[in-house]
Computed example of a mutant assay.
Amino acid sequence: MISAMIEGEKRPPQVKGEQTKCVGCGGTLRAVIPQFKAAHWRHDSGDCDPWSEPEGEWHLGWKGCFSPRYCEVFMRDPETKEIHRADVLCPRPEGAGVVLELQHSPISEEERSSREAFYSKENRMFWLLNMGRTSALSFNFASCLNFSEDNRVEVGGRDFYRMEWFMRGTMLDKWKQSRAHVFLNHGRFVFYLATRAACRSLVDGQAKGEFALARLTVREFLKAVAGDDPSALTIRSVEGGG
Rank of each mutant, 00 (worst) to 15 (best):
3 S>H: 10
4 A>K: 01
7 E>G: 02
9 E>M: 09
11 R>F: 13
12 P>T: 02
13 P>Y: 03
14 Q>G: 11
15 V>M: 13
15 V>K: 13
18 E>H: 03
21 K>A: 14
21 K>Y: 10
21 K>H: 08
21 K>M: 14
26 G>I: 00
28 T>H: 04
30 R>S: 13
30 R>F: 14
30 R>Y: 14
32 V>E: 14
32 V>F: 05
33 I>W: 06
34 P>H: 07
38 A>N: 06
39 A>I: 00
43 H>Y: 10
43 H>L: 11
43 H>F: 15
44 D>M: 11
53 E>D: 12
55 E>K: 11
56 G>S: 02
56 G>D: 14
58 W>Y: 01
59 H>V: 06
62 W>H: 08
63 K>R: 12
66 F>L: 02
67 S>E: 12
68 P>W: 04
68 P>E: 12
68 P>I: 03
69 R>F: 07
72 E>S: 04
75 M>Y: 00
75 M>G: 03
76 R>A: 08
79 E>P: 00
80 T>G: 00
80 T>C: 00
84 H>G: 09
85 R>A: 13
87 D>G: 00
91 P>K: 02
92 R>M: 01
93 P>G: 02
97 G>Y: 01
97 G>P: 02
99 V>E: 00
105 S>A: 12
107 I>A: 04
108 S>Y: 13
109 E>Y: 06
111 E>L: 13
113 S>R: 06
114 S>W: 01
117 A>F: 09
118 F>T: 00
122 E>K: 06
124 R>C: 05
126 F>C: 14
127 W>E: 00
128 L>F: 09
131 M>H: 03
132 G>D: 14
133 R>Q: 13
134 T>V: 06
136 A>G: 07
138 S>T: 04
141 F>C: 05
142 A>W: 12
142 A>S: 11
143 S>W: 10
143 S>V: 15
144 C>P: 01
145 L>Y: 10
146 N>L: 09
151 N>T: 12
152 R>H: 03
152 R>K: 14
153 V>Q: 10
159 D>R: 08
160 F>V: 06
161 Y>K: 04
164 E>C: 07
167 M>Y: 06
171 M>T: 11
173 D>G: 03
175 W>A: 02
176 K>G: 01
181 H>Y: 09
185 N>T: 10
187 G>C: 12
189 F>S: 09
190 V>G: 09
191 F>T: 12
193 L>W: 09
195 T>P: 04
196 R>W: 10
198 A>N: 05
199 C>I: 07
199 C>N: 14
199 C>Q: 15
200 R>D: 15
202 L>T: 00
202 L>R: 01
202 L>F: 07
205 G>F: 08
208 K>P: 06
218 V>W: 04
218 V>D: 05
222 L>E: 05
223 K>Y: 13
224 A>H: 09
226 A>I: 05
227 G>L: 02
228 D>I: 05
229 D>C: 07
229 D>M: 13
231 S>Q: 11
234 T>H: 07
234 T>M: 08
235 I>Q: 13
236 R>H: 12
238 V>W: 15
240 G>Y: 14
